[in-house]
Amino acid sequence: MDVFLQVVVNGLLLGGLFAITSVGLTLIFGIVKVVNFAHGEFLMIGMYATFLISTKLGLHPYAAVAAVVPLLFVLGMLTQKLLIEPLMSARNHDIQIFATVGLSTALINLALLLFGADIATTPAYGLRTAIEIGPIRMLVGQIVMFGVATALVIGLHFFLQRTRSGRGIRAVAQNRAAAQLMGINVSRVYMITFGLGAACVGLAACLVAPLYPTSPGIGTYFVLTAFVVVVLGGLGSIGGAFLGAMIIGLIDSLSGFYIGSDMREVAVFGVFLLILILRPQGLFGGRLKLSHVS
């Protein structure tokens, strides 16, 4: 029983990790409607930035938030402005996917060029200390990550629901053309949304870096999981993404323990495919907007 409890707790903490790395993607995929394959590489960039700041300047990795979040925000805005926007008018929207695949390849190899294939380790500053609560053990850093993920999700939810900019973003997400007619600068909203999505990844990077070794290929693992989480939660649904992350964390942890670690991917992707086929709007998504009958 203790073991089962520990597996569940591990799953939820893993869910916290998936949540914080996926929330940004919900904004980008759900609102700008761009499949950003370079999402994982944004995380990788953030993690290397955190690594550099904390090793070269001797700062606590959490202090790197002040630099990494703005950095990623700008990077996200630039990606939208220079890469995605020129392709929005293209006849075939699918080629955006290739653009982000190209960006992802370029960034992974750039990191390989700059940092080499070896892993980079950010100092942990005690974040790897285990806390025991009864029979359960967890790390300080994991608890912080879970807490921040929850706060971020609630914060974003309120931002989208209650603020003017947030409402603008939702309007654009629902009907781009109508929003444009209402005088909303769609291009600007997309840039801000993409920037926000990337900034969330920056925040995630500062929390993830002290807990996991950084390497050029680290993003590829996260990006597929993030897509699974976002689709599971429902496009553009922030709360849905959080719940989706918890579910995937639990599936990952439980299948890893009870079925076998080599089959975890089959379990996670199997659930993903089932959801896509049976309930393409996601577990917590609103109305289906995938097909368009006249």
């Binding site: 020129p86 392709l87 653009a99 190209g102 960006l103 370029a106 190899n109 060029l113 050029p216």
Partner: peptide, 23 residues
């Protein structure tokens, strides 16, 4: 020349092609 340079150029060329020669 260097590990990763080739892949970097490859990715960058892909991005440029998609932007400038989308058809």
């Amino acid at each position: 020349e260097a590990i990763g340079l080739h892949g970097f150029v490859y990715g960058a060329v892909l991005v440029l092609v998609v932007i400038f020669v989308p058809n």
